[in-house]
Design a protein around this nucleic acid. Structure first.
Lengths: 344, 344
DNA sequence: GGCGCGATTCGAAACGTTTCGTGTTCCGGG
DNA sequence: CCCGGAACACGAAACGTTTCGAATCGCGCC
């Protein structure tokens, strides 16, 4: 493959001049620019990224670390990130941690070897300890999306999760439900904790007591939510509604209900967080609290690129986006509810 | 950040010795290995990938080029590829072409600059001309997944698309349907053409005539399939079944039918190609011809890594996987069918 | 017509590795 | 006790860029 040297020879100029043309890093006369460009085309020169980044110190690689690329929510983020990066001349390398700390470490190590220019991390599933280790080892512009790691001075783009949890719960409460089960995330993940806080907040506003036996373990995983749902619906007094804190968990809930022969929303109302493309075609179309995924992802990657350009000055700012309730057909009014609650 | 030089100084050995330890590229005494490893840990040394690949000539980067990462089918592929790569010490950089030839060119250029070690391409949506350009410009181990580009000597891992089309059509025909619409791909994409060939083949086996006015333009896109479905169902004599050649198109078909107030499978039977995770929860759960996505993706990336290791000897082999019919609830028997057909 | 200065262009060092031809060490055998 | 050779360790070149101080060019002015 041809090098910058070949181009220089062909154009009859010095290597450094070709470099100047390539990067517009120094004034070059119009005549020479023309000659160099012709030479580049003639020999089919393509810059060598590794040589470039070795010398200059920065790579044009951005790492995108997320829990699982096969989750539609994260895939949507990846698409946006990838597109914005490409337009800015960056490459996005996507990695799924699969909730595996070892994997996360391995990925981190690779990122360090590549001397990535920046990191966009969706830390939903990595716990706090992992997170701190991850953060402290990499000294690179970093933006956290969706969640945050306590005490880390990075920029964060996130949903107003308390409001999301409140919105979903408020919807169910106002329909007359009072026994609302909720499939939770890991306790040490802020996203889940905040959504749960919204659940509690809505109950307070309705003066409804919170029954903590209805907090079901879910870990944001479909199979966990599935098992929890099976268990809770077999209790003596099952809930009349289930609030799933994530899209995957909602799928698990629906699967379990289907298996038990329970109809949604006739027997149980279900509401989830995060909309997805096939939602409208589901049986029934689920009521969800939608997150402006594309908007948030774009915001996050632009923030990161800006930070990279500014040579790493983490502002530590939080950018909080607002969720929106999308009512479809998986929730219904409970008729034996008290008038007092209906009045709200 | 510390370099190999720091490690060498700390361990009191030569740089080349450290390199030998790092790569196990030359015999080093046990005593020295210990010392070097201690030094590496002490200074927190992380190899510089760019310097490495500049000197050695190869990068450990694999490019994955696909139409759209937000499509669950491609996301599933990405997850597998990414995982296998990571385990083999490679990085996977994912790119969506979004059916945009300019984008594809841009991506290709970036891959060249990165001197990627190999390329895994799902060329479904790039047309033939683009494909040829793409291929001829990159001289790198390449494996094509899902589809192929006519006349290119690359390894291909694909589904038996004729059989997939046949299976789906045969299912509908044997249920008594004879007017079966089909949402097609682009004519120049082999995947679509082959599936359509399977459609025709099944008709021949059933001695049923093929009505070409039931070939609907779809381009593998949800919105196209949506519009085509709207149009065909408003005709004087609409089809009794629709065969969607891809998962996204099936979504479009179902959306359109829902909008027209038509019930599946009461009014129309629908069958698609390619299963997906939320399928079982849809309304109704669709009958599909499933593609062993994970298996194929794994096979493709392993093939690519093997080819990279073997220093690029494209065998030009085709690996063909078999589809499987998954009958769910979107297809039903047509009772006014002829006994002759029922007998099959 | 020579001088000075801004505008260009040039040359060489340096980025962090790998690689390979040379040293050096250490043993066993003669 | 010396020599040969295996096993190991070393040093320097080279990979393709960017960068920056130095050299050169062209032109207006005295």
């Amino acid at each position: 493959m041809s090098t910058i040297k070949d181009v220089a020879q062909r154009a009859g100029v010095a290597i450094s001049t070709v470099s100047a043309v390539l990067n517009r890093s120094a004034p070059v006369s119009e005549r020479v620019v023309k000659k160099v460009e012709a030479a580049i085309a003639a020999v089919g020169y393509v810059p060598h990224a590794a040589a470039r980044s070795l010398r200059s110190g920065h790579s044009r690689l951005v790492g995108l670390v997320l829990p699982d690329i096969a989750n539609p929510h994260f895939a949507a983020v990846a698409r946006v990130v990838e597109g914005v990066c490409l337009n800015a001349g960056y490459m996005a390398a996507v990695f799924s941690t699969s909730e595996d700390p070892d994997r996360e470490t391995q990925i981190l190590h690779m990122m360090q070897m590549q001397r990535v220019a920046g990191l966009l991390i969706i830390p939903t599933l990595s716990d706090r300890v992992q997170g701190e280790k991850l953060m402290s080892e990499v000294h690179v512009p970093t933006v956290l999306l969706d969640s945050y790691v306590e005490g880390m001075p990075y920029d964060v783009v996130k949903l107003d999760n308390v409001e999301a949890g409140r919105l979903a719960t408020e919807h169910l409460l106002s329909l007359g439900h009072s026994r609302i089960a909720v499939t939770t995330g890991r306790p040490n993940i802020a996203t889940g904790a905040d959504r749960l806080a919204g659940y509690v907040k809505a109950h307070k506003a309705h003066r409804t007591t919170v029954d903590r036996t209805l907090f079901l373990p879910g870990n944001f995983r479909r199979d966990h939510a599935y098992r929890s749902t099976l268990e809770v619906m077999r209790r003596a007094s099952p809930p009349t509604a289930i609030f799933a804190l994530s899209n995957m968990m909602m799928l698990g809930v629906l699967e379990a209900l289907g298996e038990l022969g329970l109809l949604v929303p006739r027997d149980v109302s279900v509401v989830g967080i995060d909309d997805f493309e096939t939602a409208a075609l589901m049986n029934p179309p689920p009521t969800v609290v939608a997150e402006p995924v594309a908007e948030m992802a774009e915001s996050a990657i632009r923030l990161l690129l800006r930070e990279i350009a500014a040579r790493g000055s983490p502002t530590g700012k939080w950018e909080i986006h607002q969720p929106q309730l999308v009512v479809r057909a998986s929730t219904r009014r409970l008729f034996n509810s008290t008038p007092a609650i209906d009045a709200l």
